[in-house]
Simulated scan of single mutants.
Amino acid sequence: MENTAADFLEERRLTALYAYDVLDTEPEKAFDDIAKIAARICGTPIAVVNLIGDRLQFFKAEVGLGVRSSPFDSSFCAKAILENDFLMVPDATKDTRFECNPLVTGEPHLRFYAGALLKTDDDLAIGTVCVLGYEPMVLDELQRALSGFSHDR
């Protein structure tokens, strides 16, 4: 089987992520603060700083979840890293990428997601800072600018 350009890019992305040596590490105040600030600015009950490995999603920091990881197959952030910089899903029940997601159709019944990519200096997406909620919503321009979810970064 021949490797594709996408396979090569994923290999580079994972190599860059693993070079940071932050997967499955203890919480750190700086990352915890980022999650708390994002949740506060965006008015959401959940915020996460996560890293997307090979078929795993590790939460370096989180607010409102109480867990350090979640299943990769139902990860909103695994879809977000396929975007250029930012993904906002105002109502997951009306988005074909997420309408059948078990986190939407069942507990915890997520509706809103917004995530900004964490990128290396080489522009490789290794994770996201994201906010989630139980009600449909849209971030306003001020929330996007203050939280770093603006396209003008």
Rank of each mutant, 00 (worst) to 15 (best):
D140K: 00
E107F: 12
C100E: 15
A78T: 09
S70V: 10
Q57K: 07
D54T: 06
T93W: 07
C77L: 06
I37R: 05
A61W: 00
V49K: 02
L87R: 03
S74V: 13
C42G: 02
D85F: 14
F112N: 02
N50Y: 09
L110Q: 04
T93S: 09
S75N: 08
L51T: 02
I41P: 01
R55H: 15
S69Q: 14
S70G: 15
L87K: 03
L110N: 01
R55T: 14
A114R: 01
P136H: 04
G64C: 06
F72R: 13
D91F: 06
Y134R: 12
V104W: 02
F72L: 05
M137G: 10
R40W: 08
A61Q: 06
F112V: 08
F72Q: 06
A78H: 00
I81A: 01
I46Q: 14
V89I: 10
V48L: 15
I81W: 02
T44Y: 04
T96V: 11
G133S: 05
A114L: 04
L132K: 02
V131D: 00
I37D: 08
E107D: 15
E99M: 12
V131W: 02
I34H: 03
E135K: 11
V138Q: 12
C100G: 15
L146D: 12
D54N: 15
F112E: 07
D95Q: 09
P102D: 07
L65S: 12
V63Y: 04
N84F: 09
R55V: 11
A116V: 15
T96P: 12
G115S: 08
T128R: 01
G43A: 06
H109I: 08
L110K: 04
L110D: 01
P90Q: 09
L110M: 12
N84L: 10
E141T: 07
S74D: 13
K60P: 06
H109L: 11
C130R: 01
L56H: 13
M137L: 06
K60W: 05
A116L: 13
I126S: 04
S75C: 08
K119G: 01
I46N: 12
A78G: 09
L139W: 03
I34L: 14
V63H: 06
G43P: 03
G127R: 00
H109R: 14
V89Q: 01
G106R: 15
A38V: 03
P108Q: 08
I126T: 05
D91M: 07
P108I: 09
P108E: 09
L117G: 00
R97M: 07
K119H: 00
F86W: 12
P90E: 07
S75K: 05
F72D: 05
T93K: 11
L142E: 14
K119N: 00
L124W: 02
A78C: 05
D123F: 00
T44E: 07
L65E: 12
E135P: 01
G64A: 08
F72H: 13
L118P: 01
T44V: 05
N84C: 10
M137K: 14
A35G: 09
L124M: 04
E99F: 10
S75A: 13
L139E: 04
D33R: 15
K36M: 10
F58E: 01
L124P: 02
Y113D: 10
I46S: 11
Y113N: 10
G106T: 10
D33F: 11
F76D: 07
L124I: 00
I52Q: 04
M88C: 11
D85A: 15
P136G: 04
D121P: 07
K119W: 01
C42K: 01
R40I: 06
L65C: 13
I37S: 07
